[in-house]
Nucleic acid binder design. Structure first.
Lengths: 257, 257
DNA sequence: GCGCTTAGCCGCTCA
DNA sequence: TGAGCGGTTAAGCGC
C-alpha cells in the first residue's frame, strides 16, 4: 500500500511524516530544504532541492542531484521528530550512540510517498542459480572430462534432472547439481530420475561436497560423485549476457556519454 | 518541474524512464523488481518491493526497506538502458571502468517521479582533518613541550609523516596524527616513514587514544605516544558558520526537550 | 557493550 | 592510471 501526496502544504506534509514514522514506514520525499549535521563531525548545507529517504528502521538519507553518496545521513536506529517552527517544517533525527543530530528545515515539499516494502528475497553474493547452470552447460568439462551435455532442465521445474548428456565412453548420463553440501535427498532425487527411465543410465551428482549418508547411498546405487569448485565457477562468469542484451537494444537511451 | 506517475503500466514506466534518462533527470521509483550485479563481484536478489534511485549523472541506488546502505548500486558515470523483455521491464546499467553491470527486472512499478533538482548550496564541513593539522602546526606545544615543527605534509598525500620537527633535546622527530583511536596500522605507518630514513629519528604518535595492539607495537618499536585532547583542540577552532550551526542545533534540541 | 576487520567500500590526492 | 588513505565510513563478528 503506497500513500502519495503531491504538492502538499507543510502542515499536511508534517502529519504525513508523523503518521509514516509512527507506522515505521519507508518515506521518500522530494523537497526544498536545508540540512545541518552535528555529531562526530558537523556540517551545514543551505536550502536546495533534494531527496530525503527515511526508512522504517530509522535510517536517514539525504541525496543531492548527483553522486553515489548521500550528502548527509544517519544509520539505522535513529529517532525522528517532526514539527512546525516559524512556518517551516523541521525534521529532527537523533542518533543515540554516538550522539548525533540531523536537522532538516523544509521550505517546500514537492512530492512524498510512503510504503511498507514487502521484500523477503535473500540477497546472495555470487552468481545467480540460472547463471550458474548456464556456465556448467557451456563448460561440461567442469563436470567430467569428455562429457557432452544434450539438454538442461527448463526453469526450476521438478521431476527432471538438471542436465542430461553422454559421457566419453558413450553412456547416457543424468546430472544432478547442488550448490551446497549434498544430502541423501539429492541422491534419492537422482535415483528417482534414473529409475523412471527404461534404459541404462549413469548418474552423476555434482556438488561442493557430500554428507556421509549421501556418500553411502551414492556408492550403493553405483552413481558417481563429482566435486564442484565454486571459486573456479564464479571466476568464469562473463558479462556476455549483459553486453548482448545491451547490443540488442542499441540506441535506446543513455544517461551519460 | 516534478513529473509523477502513479501505478503505471510497464510500457508507460519504460517511456517515463527513457525520457528521464535522456534528460539526465533524477528518477525515483518504487516497485517490485529483482536485481543482479556482475563486476568486481557478483550478486543476485530475487523479486521484492524496493526503491530505485537513478541520478542525472548516472549513479544508481537500490534500497531495501531497512539499512543505511544500498543493497546494490553503481557510482556516477554509468550508462543506463531500459527495455521490455518478455513483458517485463528490464533496466540495465553499465559502468565502464571497472566493467560492471547492474540489471533490474521490473514486475510492477507502484510510483515513480523525476526531477532536475536545483541545488546551489555549498556543503560546509566542520573541523576537518586539515583544520586540525593547521592548529597543531601553529601550536606544536599541544603535541609535546618544546617541540619545534619544521615541516608538514602537503595536502593528504601518502608516504610522508604528518609533521617533522625537532624536540627540546635536539632530536629529529616524525609525528603521525590520528583524530580517532589509533590502531596498529597507524603505528605501522609511522614505522614505515621512520625506517625509510637513514638517520636516527624519534617517532611520536598523537591520537586521542590507542588500541591495545597499537600500544604493544608502539612500545616494541620504541616510539612515543602523546594524547591528543580533542576538546582542547576544538576550542581553538574558529569558524563562523560552524558556530552558527552549533547554536542552532543546540537551540532546537533544547526546545524539543 | 567495545574492539577489530572487512568492503563490489567511495572519493580524493598525488606520483 | 594506480597506490595510498581518510571517512560522520557502515556493518558484521568476536569478546
Amino acid at each position: 500500500m503506497v500513500n502519495i501526496v503531491f504538492d502538499p502544504g507543510l502542515d499536511e506534509a508534517m502529519s504525513f511524516l508523523t503518521e509514516s514514522f509512527s507506522g515505521r514506514r519507508l518515506v521518500v520525499c522530494f523537497g526544498l530544504f536545508s540540512v545541518e549535521y552535528l555529531g562526530r563531525s558537523s556540517s551545514s548545507l543551505g536550502f536546495g532541492e533534494r531527496l530525503l529517504v527515511v526508512k522504517g528502521d530509522g535510517s536517514v538519507l539525504v541525496h543531492r542531484g548527483t553522486g553515489y553518496e548521500p550528502v548527509n545521513w544517519q544509520p539505522s536506529g535513529c529517532r525522528l521528530k517532526c514539527m512546525m517552527v516559524d512556518d517551516r517544517m523541521v525534521l529532527l533525527s537523533e542518533r543515540r550512540r554516538p550522539k548525533e543530530f540531523l536537522k532538516m528545515v523544509f521550505q517546500k515539499v514537492y512530492v512524498m510517498f510512503s510504503a511498507s516494502p514487502v521484500d523477503d528475497a535473500r540477497f546472495m553474493m555470487g552468481p545467480s542459480e540460472e547463471t550458474f547452470y548456464d556456465i556448467l552447460y557451456s563448460n561440461p568439462n567442469l563436470i567430467e572430462k569428455g562429457l557432452k551435455l544434450v539438454s538442461r532442465q527448463k526453469a526450476l521445474s521438478s521431476g527432471v534432472p538438471d542436465f542430461t548428456g553422454v559421457d566419453s565412453a558413450g553412456n547416457y548420463v543424468y546430472v544432478e547439481v547442488k550448490r551446497c553440501v549434498a544430502g541423501v535427498d539429492a541422491v534419492r532425487q537422482l535415483d528417482r530420475y534414473i529409475r523412471s527411465q527404461p534404459g541404462p543410465l549413469r548418474g552423476i551428482l555434482l556438488a561442493p561436497s557430500l554428507t556421509n549418508s549421501a556418500k553411502a547411498l551414492l556408492v550403493k546405487k553405483g552413481y558417481t560423485f563429482r566435486r564442484l569448485d565454486l571459486k573456479l565457477l564464479s571466476g568464469l562468469v562473463t558479462m556476455q549476457p549483459y553486453e548482448e542484451t545491451l547490443d540488442r537494444h542499441l540506441g535506446s537511451s543513455a544517461a551519460s556519454k
